[in-house]
């Protein structure tokens, strides 16, 4: 492991990139009474890791792979449209770009020497996994570590939101995360391997309820979480 402290730093929920304000769809799932307790939260986290977690981790790994390439701008642009095509819900596209903007803001200030100018998505901001991929590469993380930061973030954000929304025992919720650790590591390895494939063949694992929950959430008058 080349840069273990930097991996911990990027994966830390306290890293100032807005993670605390995102529930990864959990707020809407709780409102729909689909997640009500520890058991349903566990199922939610497992499903999220296997869908959005894998896709996000793969795109972070693919952006990491593109970082040193001569045709990096074109590759990142292609990854941007490929990720759009994997994100059918406009609310989720907007969330990914909003989180990308937040991560970019943090990255630009913390690592002023890292070039980000060729990231696509000028209007709404770059997709979050692409920013994470470039940050991971610049911070000296390897591809699997970068994918791990992405996969880990998708489950910890939702788990932490579960503590806040459902008043669940934080020890029990962390026990769920311990149970998921192996799956999280495996997801990162799968993502790093998949990133070698052509962009059209990158994983596109769908979750119908993620799309539906995100669009319902976007219509609420009052939201505690941004997603």
């Amino acid at each position: 492991m080349a840069a273990p402290s930097l991996l911990l730093l990027l994966a830390d929920g306290r890293f100032p990139a807005g993670a605390h304000a995102h529930s990864g769809g959990l707020e809407a799932a709780v409102a729909a009474r689909r997640v009500t307790d520890l058991a349903t939260l566990a199922a939610f986290l497992r499903g999220r890791l296997a869908t959005a977690g894998l896709v996000g981790a793969t795109f972070a790994a693919a952006a990491h792979r593109a970082a040193p390439a001569a045709d990096r701008r074109a590759r990142l642009a292609r990854l941007d449209t490929e990720l759009d095509a994997r994100t059918a819900a406009p609310a989720l596209r907007a969330v990914s770009r909003r989180q990308g903007r937040a991560l970019l803001r943090a990255g630009r200030t913390i690592w002023p020497h890292i070039p980000f100018a060729d990231l696509p998505g000028a209007g709404g901001g770059p997709h979050q996994p692409l920013v994470l991929g470039l940050l991971g590469a610049a911070a000296g993380l390897d591809r699997t570590e970068t994918a791990l930061a992405a996969a880990y973030g998708t489950v910890t954000a939702a788990a932490s939101a579960g503590v806040r929304l459902l008043g669940l025992d934080p020890y029990h919720v962390h026990a769920l995360l311990v149970d998921l650790a192996g799956a999280c590591d495996a997801t990162a390895r799968d993502a790093a391997d998949a990133a070698d494939g052509p962009p059209e063949d990158l994983p596109a694992v769908a979750a119908p309820l993620a799309d539906i929950h995100a669009e319902v959430h976007a219509t609420w008058e009052v939201r505690l979480f941004a997603s």
Binding site: G18, H20, A21, R105, L224
Partner: peptide
């Protein structure tokens, strides 16, 4: 309006990106 994920102090102190946005 900024959504703070039930952590209003975090949004104005520790992780200010959404507010800057």
């Amino acid at each position: 309006a900024v959504e703070t994920g039930c952590c209003p102090h975090t949004a104005i102190r520790d992780d200010i990106g959404a507010n800057l946005d």
